[in-house]
Amino acid sequence: MLIVFYAIEKLNVEPLLKSGEFALMTLLVTYALSLLIRNLQVILWTGDFRIIPTPSEYSFTISIGGTYAYFIRILAFAISIAITILLYLFFTRTMIGRAIRAIADDLEAARLVGVSPTHIFRITFGIAGITTAIAGSLLGMIYPFNPASGAVYGTKAFIVVVLGGMGSMIGAFTGGILLGLVEIFSGILWIGGMKEVVSYIFFIAILLLRPSGLFKGRV
């Protein structure tokens, strides 16, 4: 997985680093890539909805204080918490993690103290790819998916990050839980199919009212 993302970054994002409109061009290219991969998936594995079947020995429920939860969902929750903690440690305790945050904060200054942006960009892209892949495989056990469902989760990820504040780890964590609650409650209180609309509108409202997010990022 890391290799794939490293290659994607090297092939696509790097030539754009030199151009002026870095952010917009990257967005365009990655958007095109997602189109490409999604349609390849449709052709290779059709557009049917699939689910990763849970092995029968794991498909039991656990009762927590009167409510029941599938073991697999608890497991997914535990793994995502573990990844969050690991990432937090990585970003605060290791040199590479600090270098990543330095690049995000001030590219020029980071370059001056000897951090190589291209190298760091590749590593960051790889880490992002790996965590997303893990999240995808966990999701695949809980919800059915098809090649088009990636776009929904991608947008949600962006919403979560913006909610919490760009670059803030705790913000992203709280933002994720907040978005989940908003979606669930709007799904229960209103039409179930409209929960995404509510979260999108919530997202745009947050963007407009508090562009820096609910928790401002600190480096």
Binding site: N12, P15, L16, L28, V29, L35, L36, N39, I43
Partner: peptide, 19 residues
């Protein structure tokens, strides 16, 4: 069925090589 793939490749090639 491949038309969107062709599009995606065009977007990538054009943005990188002929912005």
């Amino acid at each position: 069925g491949f038309d969107l793939i062709v599009f995606a490749i065009i977007i990538i090639v054009v943005t990188i090589f002929a912005p």
